[in-house]
């Protein structure tokens, strides 16, 4: 038993490597932050493309739906491996884009960011869609009857309401995005799981993995509580029901 304990919960070992693992964990947070901004934007674009009305946009809608379905279906690990293994060899792409070293970050960082953005764009698009579809149809009708174009109606009427309906499911997506940043370790980017495994390899001690897990828990638990609060607040709103006759 004590052997097991030492293998995973060697606090001295954790103390020795605390800063090293923390620094690697900050790389996870960095990937998370960059991808969150990109994926939330990309997802909104996808959701809006999917909502384009009329016959002439059938091809756009079809392609968008195909994209969303595909990237929700393919395991993220495969997307990461395909991008990091494929993009560098596409010689028609300029070298700075093919093998990016922007902002002092190595190319695996950017391959990871790209892969996670492509996948999470698809997931967040579905969350946006749920929000957009939850806005009553009369809102679009009213906006259009005032002479607003579909785009103006989306921008000023539908999307502002849709985003207030989806913070809880969106935060759930972000939680899973944060955890999935560890997948970038497979293409040799030095984030927390890669560092922990390197430590394991050299010392045969797994405590760094537990420490890494601890960091994730510390960040994610509060996020989960926020989701709970949001859901509770929404439910209270629904329970209050048709409270239109206030004045």
């Amino acid at each position: 038993m004590s052997e097991f304990f030492h293998q995973y919960f060697d606090f001295n070992y954790m103390g020795e490597h605390f800063w090293e693992v923390l620094e690697a964990f900050l790389q996870n947070l960095l990937i998370f932050a960059v991808v969150a901004v990109l994926a939330l934007t990309w997802g909104l674009v996808l959701a809006l493309l999917r909502q384009l009305p009329g016959r002439k946009f059938v091809p756009v809608r079809f392609l968008t739906i195909a994209y969303i379905d595909l990237f929700r279906a393919i395991p993220i690990l495969i997307v990461i491996l395909l991008i990091s293994g494929g993009i560098p060899f596409l010689e028609f792409i300029p070298k700075d884009i093919r093998i990016p070293h922007w902002l002092g970050k190595p190319d695996p960082f950017w391959y990871g960011v790209a892969a996670l953005m492509l996948v999470y764009g698809a997931f967040t698009a579905e969350v946006y869609r749920a929000g957009i579809e939850a806005v009553p149809g009369g809102q679009m009708e009213a906006a259009r009857s005032l002479g607003m174009s579909h785009f103006a109606a989306m921008r000023h009427v539908i999307v502002p309401q849709a985003v207030t309906l989806i913070p809880a499911p969106m935060l759930n997506e972000l939680i899973s995005l944060l955890k999935d940043t560890t997948l970038v370790s497979v293409i040799a980017f030095s984030e927390s799981v890669l560092i922990s495994r390197e430590l394991l390899a050299e010392s045969f001690n797994s405590s760094a993995l537990i420490l890494t897990a601890f960091f994730f828990v510390v960040i994610i638990l509060p996020m989960a509580r926020v989701v709970d609060k949001m859901i509770a607040r929404n439910q209270a709103k629904i329970a209050r029901g048709s409270h239109i006759e206030v004045a």
Partner: peptide, 14 residues
Amino acid sequence: RQRVGMVFQQFNLF
């Protein structure tokens, strides 16, 4: 639609 105003049963205010 800019020349035709419409008012709805369910108000549809924003």
